[in-house]
């Protein structure tokens, strides 16, 4: 009896048809596939992409060189040097010595993206929401050393994405 069932199944290709029926069903369903790069997946406001350093609305960088991000980073991707803000710093308040003169500021802020594991701890540790992770995940390095993001690069990314970053932080704010 079993023998007979097996022979019938084999010769009618019933198992194959069963499998193909799944394929067939999906053939006519709405597609999951995104036509990247024409189409992109939606992102959470907590998306952990490329890093950025933010500024205050008056243009002064937020980072106060507390080094908490450096200390918390599990991949030791961040390197910071700090010093009192000197007179050569750009004067952002119009004429005269900036009101930030003598304040604690970084002289070097480097983030090695090859080491980074995009855990977001740095963002979480930062007391002034200076280092953040943007929604940007499309970037390439075409030369040796570009993986190390300098302070200037990070600030530039921050400037580019500030409206988005501010909005995302706003949404996430109430869970902090």
């Amino acid at each position: 009896m079993n023998m007979l069932k097996k022979i019938i199944r084999t010769w009618t290709l019933s198992e194959l048809l069963k499998g193909l029926s799944v394929t067939g069903r999906y053939l006519f369903r709405k597609k999951f596939t995104l036509n990247y790069p024409e189409e992109k997946a939606p992102q959470s406001p907590r998306f952990r992409g490329l890093h950025a350093l933010r500024r205050y609305p008056d243009g002064e960088e937020r980072c106060i060189a507390c080094k908490l991000c450096e200390a918390v980073c599990p991949a030791m991707a961040i390197t910071i040097e700090a010093a009192p803000r000197d007179e050569d710093a750009p004067e952002i308040n119009g004429v005269g010595r900036s009101r930030n003169y003598g304040n604690r500021r970084t002289t070097k802020y480097e983030l090695d993206l090859f080491k980074c594991i995009f855990c977001g701890y740095c963002e979480e540790a930062c007391p002034v929401e200076a280092i953040v992770e943007t929604r940007v995940y499309e970037y390439i390095f075409d030369g040796r050393g570009q993986n190390v993001m300098t302070k200037e690069a990070l600030l530039r990314i921050g400037d580019e994405h500030e409206p988005q970053l501010a909005a995302d932080l706003e949404v996430d704010g109430r869970y902090r």
């Binding site: 060189a65 080094k67 200390a71 700090a82 010093a83 009192p84 604690r104 500021r105």
Partner: peptide, 9 residues
Amino acid sequence: FLFSARSWE
């Protein structure tokens, strides 16, 4: 020494 290093470093 001001601002030049953190004690844990």
